[in-house]
Design a protein around this nucleic acid. Structure first.
Lengths: 130, 130
DNA sequence: CCTTGACCTTCCAGTGACTGGAATCATTAT
DNA sequence: ATAATGATTCCAGTCACTGGAAGGTCAAGG
């Protein structure tokens, strides 16, 4: 199957799929005419990566997860370790964003937002001593 | 003042400060020897950008905020609009990450994490029909 | 006067994960 | 025969830096 069909089945744009070949993540065979020829298994792998990326796994994690996906003798502990690490990162990111939101919300709430120049947001960004 | 002092006072690495000149965000004067010469006002601007970036404002927002910071006749409504937009984006990002966390946590919690190959995380990524 | 070391300069390239666009080739439909 | 669609490669751009190389400048110590 050509790249267009693989794209439709995996939900990934052709550009992205070519990129995945570039970085040796999912490498298809080639037809006689030079077109990429995706097998059903290739498409499964693309779908797998699409889901993993959708969960925010970085490409290198996807690469490891793919090799574990293909390895019938993998230990589930290996997979769990990667996922748990990623989960920790996501939780840290959430906390970071919550702190940002708090600060920003405080600034926004205290800005009257009219046509006068006085503005607590600007003052907050300028720092305590200005 | 040279770039090293500006870096210490603003909390930004010299590389980043040079980059900010490259993109015309904070452009210092030059000394006779060709060194960048940062005024106290330049350093204030760098500090301003450092705080705004720390709150996750993208550079182009920082550029606008900086021009509003310098404009004594600005309307606080203009500032508030930018900050409120950014706040909305942060809130959306938080919700997105929470959804990710939920899915991922579900997968991790259901993986026994031993040396057996069976793994709900891999199965979840492989999709419903595999 | 010379050297050492800290600091500064520019330029080039790489990051992550694509995305856009141009020029060209292959296949299919009319 | 031609037009549309879809494929190919390659180059460049995104965002916000970051690293490194090669070289210029300056103050202090011997």
């Amino acid at each position: 199957m050509n790249i267009g069909d693989a794209a439709r089945l995996s939900g990934l744009p052709p550009k992205t799929i070519r990129y995945y070949e570039d970085i040796s993540l999912v490498v298809p065979a080639r037809s006689d005419n030079g077109y990429r020829a995706y097998s059903a298994n290739d498409v499964h792998k693309l779908q797998f990566v699409q889901r993993a990326r959708g969960l925010g796994f970085p490409i290198e994690h996807c690469r490891t997860l793919l090799s574990l996906y293909e390895d019938q003798n993998r230990a589930s502990a290996d997979v769990k370790a990667i996922a748990a690490e990623h989960l920790t990162e996501i939780e840290a990111k959430i906390e970071e964003l919550k702190a940002l939101r708090k600060t920003l919300k405080h600034l926004v709430d205290n800005c009257h937002g009219d046509d006068r120049p006085s503005c607590p947001i600007i003052d907050g960004l300028a720092g305590p001593d200005h």
